[in-house]
Design a protein around this nucleic acid. Structure first.
Length: 999
RNA sequence: GGGCGAUUAGCUCAGUGGGAGAGCACUACAUUCACACUGUAGGGGUCACUGGUUCAAUCCCAGUAUCGCCCA
C-alpha cells in the first residue's frame, strides 16, 4: 500500500543519495559505436562561491536538469559538468568583512596570509550553493566539480590535486594570447572602484538614477576677448544677441573641471563659430585651454558647449583622443585629489566630493557660477562597494577583443552556434560590433595572479639600463624559470655583467631597484594584480573538461551541447566563452571550434508583480522556502534582515504578510521545478506565482493517488508487455494517446519548449489518464477475472510507467519514488530507464475515434443534466432515437452507468414526454426524467444551443458567400468551412426536431 | 536620446494568417469505494488603440499609447 500522499521531506534526500551512490550522475562508459550525437554535455554556469541559491539559479538548473535527464534516459553518454566561480571582488569582500569583525585588516597582512584566510573560509563556508543545487534534484557529476581558481597558489591540497589544470589553463591562455598579440598593456580609461581600489568590469557597475545638480559655469575667453553671442528660434528669428567675454558650460561633476583639456562645441553650432579655435582661461586652475569642435556635443542640450575631461569621463576620453587633447588625472586610488602640475595646491588631498563643494564655492567666489539646476542624473555605482565609480586613467592589461569578436560573430552567423530564441543573436551581434578592449587586470589579491614580471628597460642606443624606471619592461611567461630565460636574453643586450633578483611582489620596487643597481643586479618583480574572474570563466567549457591537458572528456564532450543561461550575461560570459573557445580549441584543420552548439537563453524570474527580485525591495523568494515550507514570521524575518535601508523594514513586512499571510506550505522540489518549467516560455521573463506551485504540488498528489488506485487494483507492471498486443478499444486508445504524448514531449524538449512539454505531460496525466482512462477502466478492473481484466491491468501499469518516464525530467523525485514503489523488484532506477521511443505505430485511429465518441456522449449527458439541475444521484435510461441501436452503447453500458448516470440503454422510435435531449454525431438521444424537468427551461436551453450553432453557421456563410474567398483561399480551407457548416446544420436540425417535439 | 521587448479571461501566461486557449481564482452542484491537495458542470475576453497589406488579421506591416529591461 502506498501512503496517502508523497512526502517530499522524507523522500527527496533519500532518493537523491540513492541516485548519487548509484553512479547515475556520471557519464556512461564510452561505446565504440558512439558518434558525436551520442554524447551530450552541459557546463553549469558556475555560481559564485559566495552565493546562495536564488530563483534564477532554480530556473536555470531546472532547465538544465530536464535536458540532462531526458538525454540520459535516451541512452546518451551525458555529462553535466558542475563547478563554481571564485568571484574575485565578492569573495574578497566577504572575507575582509569577516576578518574586520575579528579586528583584522587585510592592509596589515601579507598577501599570503590573506589568501590563506580566504581558502580557509572557502573550505568552511564557501560552496553552500552546491548543496542547495542538490536539493533541486540537479543531477550533476559532482565528482568532477571544478573551481575557476582551482590549484592557484595557497589552495588546499585537495584543490591542487583535482584541479591542477584549472590554474594551468589560465596561465597558458594568458601567455598564449599575449604571444599572439591579443593581450597588451596600456593606459586607458577604466571603471575604478575607490572603495576596493581596483578596476572593475561593466557588469559590476550599476547605473542608478539619482537627484543631482547641473552646474553652469562661465569660462572667460583668454585675453579679455569678446564676441557676439546670438541665439535663434527654429524659424531663424534672433531671440537673443549679446556681447560675451565667456563661454558657458554645464557639468554634473564640477570637481573634474580642474582636469579639463578643452571646451568642445558642435561644428554646426553657429553660436560659437566666432570663437572656435580661441582659448579660454580655465577658472581656478588658471590654465588656457582651446575651444574645439567635435560631433559629440548636443547643440540642444545645456549650453551646447561641453568641457572635455579626458581622464575622468568615457565620452570625453573619446573626444580627447580624437582631438589630441591632453588628459589630466586628478585623483588617486581612493578618489582623493592628488598633487600634480595642474592641481591647485588647496585641493590636494581632498576627497572628490569635498573637492566638488570647494570648486563650486571658489568658482562662485570668482563670479563665474551662472546657476545651479536640479537634475536627475544617472550615476554609476559599484554593485559590491556601493560607492560611486570613478572613470580613471590607469595602466592595465587589455584583451584585444575586437579581433576575437570577428570569429565569434562569424560562427554564430554560419550557424555553428545557434541562439534559442534566435532574436538574442541581435543582442550578441550588437555587442560584438561595438566591442571595447577588455580590461582583464584587477587590483585584488583573490584571483589568478597575472604571469608578468617587470624590470628596467635597456636603452637600445646606449646599451645602458634605465635604473630610474624599474618597471618599464615586462616579461610574460608561464613560470618564473621561463621568465628568467627571457630576461637573460633581453638583458644580454646591456653592457654590464648582470645577475637577476626576483623580488617579492608586495615590496617597494623602486626602492629595491635603487639598491640593486650598485650590485649590477637586475630586480624583477611579478605583477601583483590578478585577472578578471571572467577571464577564467571564459575558459570554462574546456578548462572544466581538463584543458590544457588532452583528456578523454575533452574529446568526448567538447563542444558542449547547449549553454543554458539568462540574457543578462550574454555579453559578459557567453561572448567571452565564444571568443576564448574559438581561439584555443581547434579542429584537425586548425579551425576554431565553438564551445556549444546551442545557447538557450531563458527568462529572468520576477516576483508576482513583475518586479525584479531584490533584497532591497524585499520581494525575494528563496527556492528552499518553497520546497521546505516557511512560516509567515520567518519569511518576514528573512526579508527584513540586513537591509541596506532598514527604514523599509515595516513596509516590506506589511507587504509580505499581505501577500503570504500563511507563509508557504512545503511544496517540494518537484512542484517548484514543474512550475518553473511550465512558465519557461521563450519570452522575456517569468512572474513566479505561488498559487501555481501549489497547483503543481496538487498535480503530484493526483499522480500519486492514481498510482495508488492502480496498486489496489492489481495493476503491476508486466515484464515484456507489448502495447501493440492490446485488443480492447479503451486500452488501444490510451496506448495511442500515450504514444502521441510521448512524441509531443520529446519534440518539445528537443526544441527547448519546456512549457509546452510540461503542459502536454500535465494534460495527459490529469485529463486523459486520471479523468478518463482511470474511470473508464474501473468496470473492467472490478469485473470478473479474465483476459480483459488482465489486459487492462497490464495496460494501466504500462501507461503509468510511461507517465513516470515522461514526467521524470520535470518531477524527478516523486516519479522515482513511485517507480520503485509500484514496480517492486525492478532492476533499473527510473533515472536511467529508457525514454519512450515508440510513436505512430501504436496509434489506432479507430479506437481513438470510438473513445472520442464515447467521451462526447458522456460529456453531453453530464452537461444537459447539470444544466437542468438533475441531481447526480438520480439515474435515468438513455434512449437512442432512431431505427437501430448503436452496439457501442451496449459495449460501454458499464462505463455509462457510473460516469453519465445512465441506468440502461435502449432504442426508442419517438422521443418520450419529459425527456432531456442531446445530439452526438448527428444522432439524437433522449433521457426521460419525468417530474424532474422544468420543460420551459429545457426549451430555453435547446433554443440557446440552436442559436449558438446558428450564429456559427452565419459566420461561415458570410465567408462562403464571398466570391473572392472561394476563388482565392486554398481549397483545404474552403472544404473545412463547408464541413464545419454541415456539422452545425445537422446539429441545428436535430436540436430543432427535439425542440419541436416538446410542443 | 538609442536599442530590445511586452500589451490576449479577475490574476499568471500560452497560442495561431482561416474555428479564441491553459493553470489559478470565481459560481453552482456533488460526501459515488484513487484523490477535497477531489469530482462534474458553468460564467467570463472588441486578443491595448489607429491605419495598412490580404479573399481573410488577435497573428504580418506602419504609427500611437502605456509598461518593462538594457545602453548612453
Amino acid at each position: 500500500m502506498l501512503d496517502k500522499s508523497f512526502d517530499p521531506k522524507e523522500a527527496e534526500a533519500r532518493i537523491y543519495k540513492m541516485w548519487e551512490d548509484s553512479g547515475a550522475f556520471k557519464p556512461r562508459a564510452a561505446k565504440p559505436t558512439d558518434t558525436k550525437d551520442d554524447n551530450y554535455s552541459i557546463v553549469i554556469p558556475p555560481p559564485n562561491v559566495t552565493g546562495s541559491l536564488h530563483m534564477g539559479h532554480a530556473l536555470n538548473n531546472t532547465i538544465m536538469d530536464i535536458l540532462i535527464r531526458f538525454n540520459r534516459m535516451k541512452g546518451k553518454a551525458v555529462l553535466w559538468q558542475p563547478g563554481m566561480d571564485h568571484a574575485g571582488i565578492a569573495t574578497q569582500m566577504v572575507v575582509e568583512r569577516k576578518l574586520a569583525a575579528e579586528g583584522k585588516f587585510r592592509k596589515n597582512m601579507s598577501r599570503e596570509d590573506f589568501l590563506n584566510h580566504v581558502w580557509d573560509w572557502k573550505a568552511e563556508s564557501g560552496g553552500m550553493i552546491e548543496k542547495q543545487l542538490r536539493r533541486l534534484g540537479s543531477s550533476c557529476d559532482w565528482s568532477r566539480s571544478k573551481f575557476t581558481l582551482g590549484a592557484a597558489p595557497h589552495a588546499d591540497k585537495a584543490e591542487v590535486k583535482n584541479q591542477k589544470n584549472m590554474a594551468d589553463a589560465v596561465t597558458k591562455a594568458f601567455v598564449e594570447m599575449y604571444e599572439a598579440g591579443l593581450i597588451y598593456r596600456d593606459k586607458r580609461l577604466v571603471n575604478w572602484d575607490p572603495h576596493f581600489q581596483t578596476a572593475i568590469s561593466d557588469l559590476e557597475v550599476e547605473n542608478i538614477e539619482k537627484n543631482g545638480h547641473f552646474w553652469h559655469f562661465k569660462y572667460p575667453l583668454a585675453g579679455g576677448e569678446t564676441y557676439t553671442y546670438v541665439e535663434k528660434d527654429e524659424n531663424g528669428n534672433v531671440t537673443l544677441s549679446e556681447e560675451r567675454d565667456y563661454i558657458s558650460i554645464a557639468t554634473t561633476r564640477p570637481e573634474t573641471m580642474l582636469g579639463d583639456g578643452a571646451v568642445a562645441v558642435h561644428p554646426d553650432d553657429e553660436r560659437y563659430a566666432p570663437i572656435v579655435g580661441k582659448m579660454v582661461r580655465l577658472p581656478l586652475a588658471d590654465r588656457l585651454i582651446p575651444i574645439i569642435t567635435d560631433e559629440y556635443p548636443d547643440m540642444d542640450f545645456g549650453s551646447g558647449a561641453v568641457k572635455i575631461t579626458g581622464a575622468h569621463d568615457f565620452n570625453d576620453y573619446e573626444v580627447a583622443k580624437r582631438n589630441d587633447i591632453p588628459m589630466y588625472s586628478l585623483m588617486g586610488t581612493r578618489g582623493e585629489m592628488i598633487e600634480s602640475e595642474i592641481m591647485p595646491a588647496k585641493y590636494v588631498g581632498m576627497d572628490r566630493f569635498a573637492a566638488r563643494k570647494a570648486v563650486v564655492a571658489d568658482i562662485d567666489a570668482e563670479g563665474l557660477l551662472i546657476r545651479v539646476e536640479d537634475k536627475k542624473i544617472m550615476q554609476p555605482y559599484g554593485d559590491r562597494s556601493g560607492v560611486v565609480i570613478e572613470p580613471m586613467l590607469t595602466d592595465q592589461w587589455f584583451v584585444d577583443a575586437e579581433k576575437m569578436a570577428e570569429d565569434a560573430m562569424a560562427k554564430v552567423n554560419d550557424g555553428s552556434t545557434k541562439f534559442v530564441p534566435e532574436n538574442w543573436k541581435k543582442t550578441y551581434d550588437h555587442w560584438m560590433e561595438n566591442i571595447q578592449p577588455w580590461c582583464v587586470s584587477r587590483q585584488l589579491w583573490w584571483g589568478h595572479q597575472i604571469p608578468a614580471w617587470y624590470g628596467p628597460a635597456v636603452d637600445p642606443e646606449t646599451k645602458e639600463i634605465d635604473w630610474e624606471n624599474p618597471r618599464a619592461k615586462y616579461f610574460v611567461a608561464d613560470n618564473e624559470a621561463n621568465m628568467l630565460g627571457e630576461a637573460a636574453l633581453y638583458y644580454s643586450a646591456a653592457e654590464n655583467d648582470l645577475t637577476f633578483d626576483v623580488v617579492e611582489d608586495d615590496c617597494d620596487f623602486s626602492l629595491v631597484a635603487q639598491e640593486r643597481r650598485f650590485d649590477n643586479m637586475v630586480p624583477l618583480q611579478r605583477d601583483a594584480d590578478v585577472l578578471d574572474t571572467w577571464f577564467s570563466s571564459g575558459l570554462w567549457p574546456f578548462s572544466t573538461l581538463g584543458w590544457p591537458d588532452s583528456t578523454e572528456e575533452l574529446a568526448r564532450f567538447y563542444p558542449t551541447s547547449v549553454l543554458v543561461t539568462a540574457f543578462d550575461i550574454i555579453f559578459f560570459w557567453v561572448a567571452r566563452m565564444m571568443m576564448q573557445g574559438l581561439h584555443f580549441m581547434k579542429d584537425e584543420n586548425g579551425e576554431g571550434v565553438v564551445p556549444f552548439d546551442d545557447v538557450y537563453i531563458h527568462a529572468l524570474v520576477l516576483d508576482e508583480a513583475g518586479k525584479k527580485m531584490s533584497k532591497s525591495i524585499g520581494n525575494t523568494l528563496d527556492p528552499l522556502d518553497l520546497i521546505d515550507g516557511v512560516s509567515a514570521d520567518t519569511l518576514v524575518e528573512k526579508r527584513t534582515r540586513g537591509l541596506k535601508n532598514p527604514d523599509k523594514a515595516p513596509q516590506i513586512a506589511k507587504a509580505t504578510r499581505k501577500a503570504y499571510p500563511d507563509g508557504f506550505e512545503p511544496y517540494g522540489a518537484d512542484a517548484l521545478r514543474f512550475t518553473l518549467a511550465s512558465q519557461a516560455g521563450q519570452g522575456r521573463n517569468i512572474r513566479l506565482s505561488v498559487d501555481r506551485i501549489a497547483g503543481y504540488r496538487n498535480f503530484g498528489t493526483k499522480l500519486w493517488s492514481a498510482a495508488s488506485f492502480g496498486q489496489m487494483n492489481g495493476c503491476t507492471p508486466v515484464a515484456g508487455f507489448d502495447p501493440s498486443s492490446a485488443t480492447l478499444p479503451v486500452n488501444k486508445w490510451i496506448i495511442s494517446e500515450t504514444a502521441k504524448t510521448a512524441m509531443e514531449i520529446s519534440r518539445c524538449i528537443d526544441t527547448y519548449r519546456f512549457n509546452d512539454a510540461a503542459d502536454a505531460a500535465y494534460k495527459f496525466t490529469w485529463d486523459t489518464f486520471c479523468a478518463w482512462y482511470l474511470e473508464l477502466s474501473k468496470p473492467l478492473l472490478s469485473g470478473e477475472d479474465g483476459t480483459d481484466k488482465d489486459e487492462t491491468r497490464a495496460t494501466f501499469a504500462w501507461v503509468l510507467d510511461q507517465i513516470l518516464k515522461l514526467l521524470h525530467p520535470f518531477m524527478p523525485f516523486i516519479t522515482e519514488d513511485l517507480w520503485a514503489k509500484i514496480g517492486k523488484g525492478r532492476d533499473t532506477h527510473l533515472i536511467t530507464a529508457q525514454w519512450p521511443t515508440y510513436g505512430e505505430e501504436l496509434i489506432d485511429v479507430d479506437a481513438v475515434a470510438e473513445l472520442e465518441w464515447l467521451q462526447t456522449l458522456i460529456t453531453n449527458i453530464r452537461s444537459v443534466r447539470a444544466d437542468m439541475n438533475i441531481p447526480p444521484s438520480k439515474k435515468a435510461p438513455l434512449l437512442l432515437c432512431g431505427d437501430t441501436l448503436d452496439p457501442r452503447l451496449e459495449t460501454y453500458a458499464p462505463q455509462l452507468s457510473p460516469m453519465a448516470r445512465v441506468e440502461h440503454v435502449e432504442l426508442a422510435a419517438a422521443v418520450p414526454e419529459n425527456a432531456l435531449q442531446t445530439v452526438v454525431d448527428g444522432v439524437q438521444y433522449a433521457i426521460p426524467l419525468a417530474g424532474l424537468i422544468d420543460m420551459d427551461a429545457e426549451r430555453k436551453r435547446l433554443a440557446k444551443e440552436i442559436e449558438k450553432a446558428q450564429s456559427e453557421i452565419e459566420k461561415i456563410d458570410r465567408k462562403l458567400g464571398n466570391e473572392a474567398f472561394v476563388a482565392k483561399a486554398p481549397e483545404k480551407v474552403v472544404t473545412l468551412q463547408k464541413e464545419r457548416r454541415a456539422g452545425y446544420a445537422a446539429e441545428v436540425e436535430t436540436l430543432q426536431a427535439a425542440l419541436d417535439g416538446l410542443g
